[in-house]
Simulated assay, not measured.
Amino acid sequence: MSQQGPARAEEGEAIRTFFEGLTPAGLEQLNRIYDEEARFRDPFNEVVGIAAIRRIFADMFEQAPDARFTVQEVIGAAPLLYVRWDFTFTPGRAKAPWSVEGVSRLALGEDGRIVEHIDYWDPAAGIYERLPLLGTVLRWVRRRLAAD
């Protein structure tokens, strides 16, 4: 189910189209949506500049060629948008795709391009808990800390 919150239609659709249509071939067009000096941060990376952002996305596709985003909603209006998404990918030798839910905070510059992109998602629930040894420990800790 894909829906858009109160973001202006053109802003939300541009973001949705970008993320849902992201492919390795499209990485050369990042300058259409990202400012040259954009800042990007997620649980694993913190970089500045479109070349560094391009390397992060390229590595994502190298590790999981089937990686894709599904935008669930876009909320806000320039200069600040929040995008809730599902990221689906098949890592390494996994038999079935994995899915991670997250939110991106996107700050837009005067020209409408992204100047700051911060991703918020839980790598423990999305990735670490699926790993054989580490996952067992993390699931145990999560159960112990959960409210009854």
Rank of each mutant, 00 (worst) to 15 (best):
W85R: 04
S104F: 11
P97V: 02
R68F: 01
I75E: 03
E37K: 10
L134M: 15
P79Y: 07
I53P: 05
T90G: 03
W85H: 07
S104T: 15
P132L: 02
T70D: 09
D35K: 05
N45S: 11
D111F: 00
A14I: 06
A67N: 07
G76W: 13
R142M: 01
T88L: 03
G21E: 05
R16T: 12
D86L: 09
L80S: 13
V83T: 07
T23Y: 05
G21I: 03
L145T: 11
H117L: 01
Q63I: 07
W121A: 04
A78Y: 12
A146V: 00
A94H: 14
R105G: 10
R68G: 05
T70F: 03
F44T: 09
F18T: 02
T23V: 06
I33W: 09
F19Q: 06
E37L: 04
F69G: 03
I56A: 11
A9K: 12
T88D: 11
F69E: 05
L133F: 15
E20H: 05
F44P: 10
M1K: 08
D86M: 01
F18G: 02
A124C: 08
A77G: 13
L27F: 01
V141E: 10
R32M: 03
G109I: 05
E73I: 01
R16N: 01
D148K: 12
A146T: 10
M1H: 10
E116D: 15
A25F: 00
T70I: 05
G102R: 05
A107F: 14
Y128E: 02
D122Q: 11
R139V: 00
N31D: 15
G109C: 08
P97I: 04
R32D: 10
Q72H: 15
P79T: 04
L108V: 00
D122S: 07
W98R: 15
P123N: 01
F19L: 10
V74M: 11
Q4N: 11
F89S: 04
G102I: 01
G5F: 07
E110N: 14
A124W: 06
V74I: 14
E101S: 13
G126L: 13
L145W: 09
D35V: 01
G109Q: 09
G112S: 06
G12Y: 04
R143L: 08
R32Q: 15
I127H: 01
G5S: 07
V47A: 00
R144M: 05
R68P: 02
F61S: 06
M1G: 13
V47D: 08
A107Y: 12
L131N: 09
E101N: 08
G5L: 12
K95T: 09
G21P: 06
V71W: 00
A9Y: 09
A25H: 04
R113M: 00
I53K: 03
R8N: 14
D122L: 02
V48T: 14
R113F: 03
M60A: 13
V71F: 00
F44G: 13
A96R: 14
Q29S: 06
L30Q: 06
W85I: 00
M60V: 09
F87A: 00
I50K: 07
Q63V: 10
W85M: 02
R16Y: 06
R130G: 11
E46R: 14
V103E: 07
Y82W: 15
D35E: 08
D35R: 10
R143S: 08
R143V: 02
V48S: 12
E13M: 07
Q63M: 15
Y34T: 06
A58G: 11
L138V: 02
